[in-house]
Design a protein around this nucleic acid. Structure first.
Length: 271
DNA sequence: CGCTGACCCTGACGGC
DNA sequence: TGCCGTCAGGGTCAGC
């Protein structure tokens, strides 16, 4: 489900929910593990805690409470949903935060690729791999990307999705960014010019910010914690459009597989 | 270093 | 109706 824009949309909606309703009465759970065992000892410490902040780095969320902090990853199908105390829970509702108002903030994740863990103390420790550049950070420039790609054989699309290089870009936005940059996803990373790297960096920011503005991409089931669907899927120019006409030149959009993931591009616009 | 495939898990969808 | 294969926005790991 979630790439950087969707995680950021969730972060903002959580922030808004907690601004109005900052106290946790208690936390309940329906199973003891998602991808990893749930931090039940931390959950118990959240009785009567207050939410201090909700932060994002890469595709991770950190929820800081007055008594402890959690790190949350949405995996493919994870999400939050705010509901009334009397509303029924659903099959894959795993963790329930009962708020001061009596409403419930529910974490739902059918595939259970997501996780919640005790905050490990620093962003560098949330992943076993060192996290790459934050794409919205001005410090990530065409020159930086060029040096990150130097000598590498891996296809540029795989490099863009490699969280050790740049974080937050997943399968949808990698295809969309490369289309807008005129670069074929299969191009060897080391063969991408400085000028193209600069375009990729600029288009990354444009696409990600535009997607955030539009509430993310809702293809199957993504929604904010306030249950609003996104609309950026209407702005997808190549993702999911195999066989359809390119919006720029009418050539048929192609699909292939790179790094085990579906990849979409226009054979005419992208070289 | 880098690529491939497998794996974690459930659900939706199309073909027969 | 059901069964089967395929695919899905992520990340990690072993093996070559």
């Amino acid at each position: 489900m979630p790439e950087l824009p969707e995680v950021e949309v969730v972060r903002r909606s959580l922030e808004e929910i907690f601004r109005a309703d900052p106290e946790i009465k208690k936390v309940a759970w329906n199973r003891a593990d998602l991808r990893f065992p749930l931090p039940l000892a931390i959950f118990r410490r959240l009785n009567r805690a207050r939410v201090i902040a909700v932060e994002r780095r890469a595709k991770y969320l950190r929820i800081e409470f007055s008594t402890a902090s959690l790190v949350v990853h949405l995996g493919m199908t994870g999400g939050f949903r705010l509901q009334e105390a009397t509303d029924e829970l659903r099959k894959h509702d795993h963790v329930i935060f009962e708020l001061g108002s009596g409403r419930r903030l529910v974490f739902e994740d059918p595939r259970r690729f997501g996780f919640m863990l005790r905050w490990p103390g620093s962003w560098e420790s949330v992943s076993s791999q060192p996290l790459g550049s934050e794409p919205l950070d001005p410090a990530w420039t065409g020159e930086v990307l060029k040096s990150q790609l130097r000598g590498r054989q891996t296809p540029i699309k795989c490099a863009l999705m490699d969280q050790r290089i740049v974080v937050g870009i997943g399968n949808i936005y990698a295809s969309e960014i490369l289309f807008r940059s005129g670069v074929r996803p299969q191009r060897r990373s080391g063969r991408v010019s400085l000028q193209e790297c600069t375009k990729i960096v600029q288009n990354s920011r444009l696409v990600l910010l535009d997607a955030i503005r539009q509430g993310g991409s809702t293809i199957r089931d993504f929604h904010s914690a306030g249950e609003e669907a996104g609309s950026f899927q209407e702005s997808h120019r190549v993702y999911g459009r195999a066989g359809k006409k390119c919006v720029v030149c009418s050539t048929h959009i192609k699909r292939s597989v790179l790094g085990g993931r579906s990849t979409f591009w226009c054979p005419s616009c992208q070289t």
